[in-house]
Design a protein around this nucleic acid. Structure first.
Length: 476
RNA sequence: AGCGGGGUAGGGCAGCCAGGAGUGCCCGGUGGGCUCAUAACCCACAGGUCAGUGGUUCAAAUCCACUCCCCGCUACCA
């Protein structure tokens, strides 16, 4: 960012040539508006929609110098929001952003989401399996107020949601409210006070409010957890389930105080978990959750306690990323039936290959093989590569080669039956198409005369594939 | 190659900008407690050459230099 400014700002091209998505430029043939010219205008639309619903004065936000306007964006679109969009707003006389809250990407198991690795998850699929609250909680628990990627590790996701959100927070709310229902018919005593615990409570609430203001959700979640910890600890320490038989008033004090904490939790969680928060509001029998009520006792009778959030089950988690763990490459034996020179290229062959099914594959091996040499060979092919046209001829896959003495040699498997898969033992093959970039990123290599991907040795009919290529050769 | 993020307990992370005893969170491990609650809750314990090397300093996870390793982005896109 500093660098562009230091280098001097230049004009901004706001048109793009087709093929492109977005809006066509009127009067031009194949030109489109650059998407970041018009996309932020959607911010106005959603804000105006929100403002009308909540009876807000639109101009006092969009036309005022005093308004505090924050953009929450991903790190890849920083410059549009840092330079272009404010420039457009400035020119049009609208409020400019006071702050950009920039977040990193969501990675899965430490790596970019990828269809071929089965780690691609979209919101529509997620929602079929789990409530939004779980993911919202996980994001908030990991979002700091600085740029950094968030990793979605499915196991960690499940553990944190189950242990922190469900067992610690939600279970505390339920145990408290249910106890109040059962033993006191939901009637609380608003005068309950606990000296040192009240001090801790006030400290935690202050901390949580500060962290929210700093947009540090991770730390805000830490504070919220500390509050439910305090609740659980206090409840445990006073053992109201025993007191209820010996000192009813004291038991009522403990439960009433704890219910006050539940109310605090409902308020503090409302930006992160609106649905859950709303459920708690109903159970607490409150008209609304107001930030000014934080730290104050809970008044009035409460409604019936209900379980709202339940733990994520392993099976559900497994269904969330059904392709994860599958082997991403569909490598097969193919017999080259015919090899002809590509009519429009010097280096390309067009191959007709029997890979259990007939396929046409275009490959650049003319520097290394003659057509007759290739014909009849049994070799390894990548079958789930995205089809591409090379100089006008469709290629449905790729022949695999390794470099031997500065020459690219195909990986021959003379005795193998066409169509047989090559893969690690005991895995399932993912048939999602991948592009060549992803293939080279995965990095199939030669180790000890065998083909490996990571730690996995690739096998053909149960035995490792023997290849004649130097140690460490990259397969491409 | 350039640019950016990272390497801290068995796993996942904060702490670093503004140096002050390895402080903290979650999981996992071990031992105990409780039985109100969603097999939950509470208490205690174990576990670390803060990637490496060198420097600055009374003092370095934190600042500086170099090295190694991981991840991401990047061209008709400032």
């Amino acid at each position: 960012m500093k660098e562009w400014i230091a280098n001097g700002l230049q004009d901004w091209d706001i048109s793009r040539d087709g093929p492109y998505f977005g809006f066509k430029i009127p009067g031009e043939d194949d030109k489109y508006y650059y998407v970041w010219l018009d996309a932020p205008i959607g911010y106005f639309a959603s804000f105006v929609n929100y403002a009308r619903k909540h009876d807000l004065d639109i101009d006092s936000f969009l036309r005022s110098r005093d308004a505090n306007l924050i953009h929450f964006i991903g790190k890849d679109i920083t410059y549009f929001h840092f330079l272009f969009w404010p420039a457009m707003l400035m020119a049009a006389g609208f409020t400019q952003p006071t702050k950009l809250a920039v977040h990193g990407f969501l990675t899965i198991n430490g790596q970019k989401m990828s269809k071929s690795r089965g780690t691609f998850l979209n919101a529509g699929d997620y929602i079929k399996h789990l409530p939004p609250e779980c993911l919202r909680y996980y994001y908030a628990a990991n979002l700091a107020n600085r740029i950094g990627d968030i990793d979605l590790n499915p196991q960690d996701f499940m553990e944190r949601v189950n242990n922190e959100l469900v067992s610690n927070i939600a279970n505390f709310a339920y145990r408290t409210l249910k106890f109040a229902n059962q033993h006191f018919d939901g009637q609380l005593d608003k005068s309950s006070k606990f000296g040192s615990e009240d001090a801790s409570r006030a400290g935690i609430i202050k901390e949580a409010k500060e962290k929210f203001s700093e947009l540090n959700l991770r730390e805000a979640v830490q504070a919220i957890l500390a509050l439910s910890d305090l609740g659980n600890r206090t409840f445990q320490k006073h053992e109201p389930w025993k007191l209820v038989r010996t000192d009813r008033q004291k038991a009522l004090d403990v439960v009433s105080w704890s219910a006050g904490i539940v109310k605090d939790l409902a308020i503090l969680l409302s930006p992160i978990l609106p649905d859950y928060s709303e459920q708690l509001r109903q159970q607490l029998n409150l008209k609304k959750l107001d930030i000014s009520e934080l730290g104050k006792p809970l008044t009035g009778p409460i409604s019936k306690a209900r379980i709202v959030l339940t733990p994520i089950e392993q099976q559900v988690l497994d269904r969330l990323l059904p392709c994860a763990g599958k082997f991403p490459l569909d490598i097969r034996v193919g017999r080259i039936i015919k090899a002809v020179h590509h009519p429009a290229a010097d280096k390309l062959f067009v191959l007709q290959v029997d890979m259990g099914e007939p396929r046409q594959i275009v490959t650049g091996l003319r520097d290394f093989y003659k057509a007759e040499e290739l014909e009849g060979k049994h070799a390894l092919f990548l079958a789930n590569l995205k089809p591409v046209k090379l100089r006008g001829r469709e290629s449905n896959g790729m022949i695999l080669t390794a470099e031997v003495n500065r020459k690219f040699r195909v990986l021959e498997v003379p005795a193998a039956k066409p169509g047989t898969n090559v893969m690690p033992k005991d895995v399932e093959i993912g048939r999602e198409q991948i592009d060549i970039k992803e293939f080279s990123r995965l990095g199939v290599t030669v180790k000890g005369g065998k083909l490996v991907l990571g730690d996995a040795i690739l096998t053909l009919g149960g035995a490792p594939v023997a290849v004649d290529a130097p140690e460490g050769s990259k397969v491409s």
